[in-house]
Design a protein around this nucleic acid. Sequence first.
DNA 1: CAACCATATGGCCACGTGGTCACACACTCA
DNA 2: TGAGTGTGTGACCACGTGGCCATATGGTTG
Lengths: 105, 105
Amino acid sequence: MTPELLSLIAERFKVLAEPARLQILQSLRGGERTVSELAQATGLGQANLSKHLQSLYNGGFVDRRKEGLYVHYHLADRDVFRICELMCGRMEQVERSRRRALSRS
Amino acid sequence: MTPELLSLIAERFKVLAEPARLQILQSLRGGERTVSELAQATGLGQANLSKHLQSLYNGGFVDRRKEGLYVHYHLADRDVFRICELMCGRMEQVERSRRRALSRS
DNA sequence: CAACCATATGGCCACGTGGTCACACACTCA
DNA sequence: TGAGTGTGTGACCACGTGGCCATATGGTTG
């Protein structure tokens, strides 16, 4: 496990470490969405949204398809949500240990 | 999926979005380590390391046990590495699609 | 062609945070 | 008790980046 590999993994996590981007991914669970549709669904500004989409695209989490004026974004794969579910499982566990810690003190 | 929940998930990811902390977790795969052992294994400064350990502890990724002068840290669970493996799988896939994109342009 | 629209991009600011230093705290041992 | 050691913490700086504005880019329509 080289330092370079660790940096790569960290960079992947960094893309998901942002509520706005998680919100975008969630909005894409229903299928393809254009940037304007995503803007309305998420309430994010257009420029801001565009940058987040760029991050997600560079990270390989979403793919896109241009059609006339519009750009349609869609999930690159569904593994992202497997990761998120593992995270949610962790959150429950953290809750338990937090309560343990509180009762300890 | 409320905004608050998304923020919580994002915060979990943020803890893992740092090479130094991934390195610490990896060093703990072999079992318990004291802070000084971790400092030597990772090459991180002591104060810096202590803060990273605090993050990991607050995130519930590691647990600790005080014994005399020393504090022994250990992994809270092994699911972290399931998440990392999923991430690594993603990285291979990203490689493939990057090559696709290159050959497309 | 010009007018218009959807999206991307560069500049800018404000905020968060990783790294380091200095020091505080906790514990052991003479 | 006081010296010495391991760990945590506050202050500080430097850097990265999310959000917003203005503008560029690429495409369509009349």
